[in-house]
Design a protein around this nucleic acid. Sequence first.
DNA 1: TTTGATTTGTTACAATATAACATTTTAATA
DNA 2: TATTAAAATGTTATATTGTAACAAATCAAA
Lengths: 147, 147
Amino acid sequence: MARETPLIQDVADYCLQKGFRFTEPRQFVLDIIARSKKPIGAYEVLEKLGKKLKNPKPPTAYRAIEFLSEHGFIHRIESLNAYIICQSDHLHKGSQFMICDQCGTVLETHLCDLPEPLVKKTRDAHFHLTRWNVELHGICQTCYKPV
Amino acid sequence: MARETPLIQDVADYCLQKGFRFTEPRQFVLDIIARSKKPIGAYEVLEKLGKKLKNPKPPTAYRAIEFLSEHGFIHRIESLNAYIICQSDHLHKGSQFMICDQCGTVLETHLCDLPEPLVKKTRDAHFHLTRWNVELHGICQTCYKPV
DNA sequence: TTTGATTTGTTACAATATAACATTTTAATA
DNA sequence: TATTAAAATGTTATATTGTAACAAATCAAA
Ligand SMILES: [Zn+2]
Ligand SMILES: [Zn+2]
Ligand SMILES: [Zn+2]
Ligand SMILES: [Zn+2]
């Protein structure tokens, strides 16, 4: 398959480097999620995947999603049961998203470290942090209409 | 029904004050979630509810969950599809949880305000924040075994 | 005691996700 | 090159989580 975008190339390189196979389902699912402006559900991915593969079933979509997610190329938005391309150059322990509850747009922001007040909470509780996920809900600039 | 715990009494008072009905499904579901040491799924709530009500169906559990959640007495842990009693005296815009991926225990902590680095992100994006949810994954003190 | 709002009961189904096992692909090994 | 074992996919079936729609009951106010 022809490599279509820089992102596809990046993931191809990553897989080559790490010895993973960048198979058709993985490429197509990455492309589908990357092209989506908003978080996209697994079954919508599956439906679009059907234009590229012959009659794919849920596990095909879910496995590719799992692979891409494990390696940080996409993220799951937990409060939406949906997936979005990493907008912060993958491989980070924490994610933070601003989710517009009106138009559905999601903006990922990157903080290298968890903010100190939260770190303090984990220290106080002797909690050994491995990853974090922050989902901020509200109204985006475009949707916001002051009264 | 007899009022069993201070929490039940608190919610009863709140409902009286606000003009909501603190019906049996709501009381029982609150009690079930409050007694659970760990986040509990809707269908497990439903199963336990079956010991109190005659053959309840999913909407009965989900409606009570929705009510209690809307009014801040319980929270949904998005990454677990499960519900937990509010450990921070309800009515807060933001939640933060430490989730032990080994034993499943969840500890809620309270920050009155979103940490400044995150507030700055929302300001920069002109994002109008309404609520936030922070889910910290890791290993709790009890489960942690240093090498 | 009628009325209207709130809440629940009930049926059916939608949406999301995974278990289990057969088959194929791939690259390393013999 | 033929063999093998790991990785990945195909396929079938099903589990899990959540909701739409409408009828019936409850409750408090008019
Ligand atoms: Zn990212
Ligand atoms: Zn918006
Ligand atoms: Zn709380
Ligand atoms: Zn633990």
